[in-house]
């Protein structure tokens, strides 16, 4: 059984079919990329997983559980994290607080302890801080630790968002265009981090990406989508050589 299975999913809203009977599966420990022209339905795949939309048909299984039955806030508890195409950060909070919010699923309850600032609350806060510091070390964020996210340059913000997703301690991480807006040096850093995340943290990664150099560098398998359906699936070189893929990108 695969870690993550997308099984005959169809999603339509407002007269558009964003995903059309799409199936694929992701193995544990894999780096899986989704590519496709604009409007192919790549981000919709992520939005269905994080329960922004209810699929009209089909099942999405994670660890054997159908997550279309899980409430929207429950997806994080399963160990699924995501980043966003256009950055959804908490702009008026510090980098530390953004990362701490990544750990929210471990921080529920304890409201009364925090209200009276009891020692047990302090211990919890310190533990959380320690976990967050590990991520700050991993992603070289220490110069920005206390800075307001809204004042940071774009490249750093993208890293903060990645860090926030990691703070959730996910088993499966969805990255929505992680390289968009980054320069080539930042993209190279990113590819190293993605490999580190898989190797050291054992996290399975699904990424939606346009930058083929990044995809070829890190992805084990690539799914190419067009108009909501699967166009090709295979290793990066197989997909790049596929005639349908070339036609979809270049037009016929």
């Amino acid at each position: 059984m695969s870690l993550f299975e997308f099984d005959a999913v169809t999603l339509s809203f407002g007269g558009i079919t964003a995903i059309r009977n799409l199936s694929f599966h992701v193995e544990k420990g894999e780096i899986f990329a989704i590519i496709g022209p604009n409007g192919a339905g790549k981000t919709s795949v992520l939005n269905v997983v994080s329960r922004v939309f209810d699929p009209n048909e089909g099942q999405i299984r994670f660890d054997g559980r159908d997550i279309t039955k899980v409430p929207r806030k429950g997806v994080a508890d399963l160990g699924i994290a995501r980043t966003f195409q256009n950055l959804e950060l908490f702009e008026r909070a510090s980098v530390i607080d953004n990362l701490r919010l990544g750990r929210h699923r471990f921080e529920r309850g304890g409201t009364w302890q925090s209200l009276f600032n009891l020692p047990s609350h302090g211990r919890r806060e310190d533990e959380a801080r320690e976990a967050v510091e590990a991520i700050i070390d991993l992603l070289d964020l220490s110069p920005w630790r206390e800075a307001m996210v809204g004042s940071l340059p774009y490249g750093v913000r993208k890293v903060v968002e990645l860090g926030r997703a990691l703070a959730l301690e996910p088993k499966l991480l969805f990255l929505d265009e992680p390289a968009s807006g980054l320069n080539s040096e930042e993209t190279r850093d990113l590819s190293f981090w993605i490999e580190d995340i898989r190797r050291d943290l054992g996290i399975t990664i699904v990424m939606v990406e346009h930058d083929m150099s990044l995809v070829s560098a890190v992805a084990d398998r690539v799914l190419c989508m067009n108009l909501g359906s699967r166009l090709a699936l295979g290793t990066p070189s197989e997909v790049q050589a596929n005639a349908d893929v070339i036609a979809a990108y270049l037009g016929t």
Binding site: V75, E91, L101, H104, L168
Partner: peptide, 13 residues
């Protein structure tokens, strides 16, 4: 979190 981004807040549980 809810103030600054609802989408991200949902995503973090």
């Amino acid at each position: 979190a809810v103030r600054d981004s609802e989408a991200a807040a949902w995503g973090l549980g």
